[in-house]
Amino acid sequence: MHNDQYPDDVPTPHIELPPGVFPPMPGYTIADLLFVANQPVEAFLEAHTIDPGLIRETSTALVSHVYAVFEREDVQYQIATWYQKPYDHPSMCTRSIEIIAEQFGVLALDAAADSLEGSPLLQLGEDFYLEFIRLAGEAIKYHILKLNDRENPAHSAGHEAAQ
Rank of each mutant, 00 (worst) to 15 (best):
A31W: 02
A31Q: 09
D32F: 08
L33N: 02
L33T: 05
L34K: 09
F35C: 06
F35L: 11
F35M: 07
V36S: 03
N38H: 11
N38M: 10
Q39F: 06
Q39P: 03
V41H: 10
E42W: 09
A43S: 13
F44S: 11
F44I: 10
L45K: 08
L45A: 05
A47P: 05
A47C: 06
H48I: 01
T49M: 14
T49V: 08
T49H: 15
I50E: 09
I50T: 13
I50D: 06
I50M: 11
D51A: 13
P52S: 08
P52V: 01
G53Y: 04
G53W: 03
L54S: 10
I55A: 06
I55V: 15
R56Q: 11
R56L: 08
E57I: 00
E57Y: 03
T58Q: 10
T58A: 11
T58I: 02
S59E: 03
S59Q: 10
T60D: 15
L62T: 01
L62Y: 06
V63N: 02
S64F: 03
H65D: 01
V66F: 03
V66E: 04
V66Y: 01
Y67F: 11
Y67D: 14
A68I: 04
V69M: 02
V69S: 10
E71R: 05
V75Q: 06
V75Y: 07
Q78H: 12
I79Y: 02
T81H: 03
T81N: 04
Y83M: 10
Y83V: 05
K85D: 14
K85M: 15
K85R: 15
P86V: 08
Y87D: 12
D88A: 00
D88G: 01
H89Y: 14
H89L: 15
P90S: 08
P90H: 10
S91G: 03
S91M: 10
